[in-house]
Amino acid sequence: MATYDSLFSALGLKQWCAEGKADGPMSMADLLNKASGKSAEPESLWDLPFPSMDALNDSCAAFPKSRELTQGLEQGFLAIKDNLSLVLDPITQPLSWSLDGALYGMINTPWWIVIPIMLAVVFLVTKSWKLVVFVGASLCLLAFIDYYVYAMQTLAIIFVCAFLCVLFGVPIGIAMSRSNTMQRLTIPVLDMLQTLPPFVYLIPLIFLFSVTESKLYGIAIILYAIVPVVRLTNLGIRLVDKDVIEAADAFGMTPRQKLFKVQIPLALPNIMAGVNQTIMMSLAMVVIASLVSAPGLGVLVLRGIRNLDLGVGLIAGFGIVILAVILDRVTKASLARINASQNQ
């Protein structure tokens, strides 16, 4: 029989193993072995298999195969899925509304209103005419090659998601900066969110929500992009000059006054650096999220891959680069303005 038979007999588990014996379907490898007339047993020590789940299952039918692990996980997830959706669905519904609303608004407002408004915002946050001209030219270029709608969809999703990232990320970062326990608990989660391949986010979300709902990609983008703003808020507040904090204490500030009058203003450069990163990561994710029906330039990239439509894919990629440059320059310029007013 198989390699690890002796192990199970030594442990006195023969009985238990025999109970699990069933003539279930064989694996492909088993069938191939059978067909070629080879026995499953290795001939020498050289071929000794690692005592993995499958190898142990060969010797003892009651031992679960590794396939059962993944299947178990899936079944467990499906079992709680309905209850989970019951809770998550209403909570996340506003996300769908705001995404749909933003998409509707951006696309249905005429271009000659949207573009000037954007330029006005750019001027307001950067006070730089050079950037206004650059952004205006880039947007006009995208519109000229008929990518205006796609670009606006992408931008609308980024605005909503980045705004929500800041809305939730900054308070989480503040909580982390105030409690070391909170920091210890949160950092592994942030690490996981940051290192999990972007595609993997989408898998459980597809099961939880319907692919036609916009919150599906909204959640994926927020989870992926929220990390830098949380981290840098925490870091920024922890880096605030200890002497200034001491002065705030010595003059009798309440913790709340300290937070709003000292810590947040002084951490602002770091928080804004986090916002910049968050916006850039939303852009990266919104392209991947086109796999789960996120509209925008990502759809064109996907079409380029699926239909081998080289031109469409490349131009859409170029459009994404332009958006990235615009978003980066504008946030960096406003960050520089904040820095300039604080430099010691």
Partner: peptide
């Protein structure tokens, strides 16, 4: 204690500790 720090004692620091913003 906060009351005391606000009204009874003020402090001057070696590194000034002014609010830069």
């Amino acid at each position: 204690l906060r009351q005391l720090r606000r009204e009874q004692m003020s402090m001057v620091f070696q590194k000034f500790a002014l609010l830069p913003h």
